[in-house]
Design a protein around this nucleic acid. Sequence first.
RNA 1: AGGGCUAUGGCAGAGUGGCAAUGCGAUGGAUUGCAAAUCCAUUUCUUACCGGUUCGACUCCGGUUAGCCCUUCCA
Length: 462
Amino acid sequence: MLHIYDTLTQTKKQFKPIDAGKIRMYVCGITIYDYSHIGHARTFVAFDVITRYLRFSEYDLTYVRNITDIDDKIIARANENGEDFKQLTARFEKIMHEDFAALGMAEPDIEPKATDSIAEIIEIIEQLIESNFAYQGEDGDVYYHVPEFADYGKLSKQNLEALQAGERVGVATDKKNSMDFVLWKKAKPGEPTWDSPWGEGRPGWHIECSAMTKKCLGKHFDIHGGGSDLQFPHHENEIAQSEAANGCTFANTWIHTGMVQVDKVKMSKSLNNFFTIRDVLKEFRAETVRYFMLSSHYRSQLSYGEENLISADAALERLYLSLRDIDFQQPLPQVDRDNPFVEKFGIAMDDDFNTPEAVAVLFEVAKAINKAESTDSARANAAILVELGGVLGILQQAPSEFLTAAVGDETQDDALIEQLILERKQAREDKNWARADEIRDQFNDMGIVLEDKEGKTLWRRN
RNA sequence: AGGGCUAUGGCAGAGUGGCAAUGCGAUGGAUUGCAAAUCCAUUUCUUACCGGUUCGACUCCGGUUAGCCCUUCCA
């Protein structure tokens, strides 16, 4: 029985889809004007694993992850670069897809963009104005009137008075209430604009997601997710917009991921303490980065640091080493869902996608492979390890490939490696241990570990 | 200031009202020419602090302290 922690009710609820066997899930993607960093990776790897597990659990899932391709920062960056904002977003969209793919993320089923949803955005704003949840200010911007929505603050556990009390003394605006937020921004010179009933302009930040959820999944769907920093105001405002416009519950379950931290502080652009996915992949295997993210629960904060990555790499290597002697040329046996390892894995994942516990099961399987007394037994467990690894999006490479591939900028001279191994073999046959060890030291300097096994010498990167 | 989350061994990180997973690391043994890998064993936490409930709490409740996140753009 799948249980998911729901931010709205702050409880782990037994999950029940709206339509039996089907799940509709929407995850807030990124605002696209720069390289994605490890914080983004954390959130979307988490949802990738959720996606894989829901499908493994035989749900018919529709996974939507949007791209926000119009907003203040995009316009500012495009102006800085002296390019059209579309050029900027197209470039980084491509980079995002490359980086996400490198981390083993499957593509969402639908990846809608704000700029492709202007008609739907306008439609919702019109509905909100008709029902008095929104109004156009004197200066031309259209606002959502927050006090009109009685449930405002239910997701983030805030109340209007407290929010207003805590706010900064701002500049004078034409808002009716200081908490009112923009649905449609009147055009300013030099900015991209679209035509609307309220004049030329562009959408505000939150309205696109109300439009895209409805467009892709309908008024009421199962799961809405995103980083925990989106809880307020973004998701709170989405609820206000959608529930006011649609007159029904928006999302049944809210999933929020914990933030990645560097030196106990949130990784963010403004603090300039972020590591881009690209840069990290120059030093670590992509799969190691992914494993690192699975090694803690998706809701907890994740502390990014080199030591933790090194430790993750060693752990993942142990799993791959257990698969190294398996012959993958022959098809592995079918995995039985009643297998105790598979059941244990399922129990862990059913408990709010508890990946650390699920990973622990993988190590039990690896140990079973290492201890297996027959090839059949080893192969049966290897099949389980690869299958369950696949649900987490790891262990899908050929072990030898994972263990020997160069990382990032490393160069690989296979011919030299082979030649040195041959030379060492000869030295060992001559019982010239000094020379043999000298060669092994040379390998160590290259970051390569040798293993003499059953007359053969294997090597892997350390 | 208001709201939320968290506090576990050298490090990372789960579970559990009744011997505290798993991984990394360390130590010893088996194995090896020596290693590596593997297996076996050991290693460390009175589970932040104080009080309560209970036959029994790390686990439930209350308080304290500390950290982080949100209240401004943010995955």
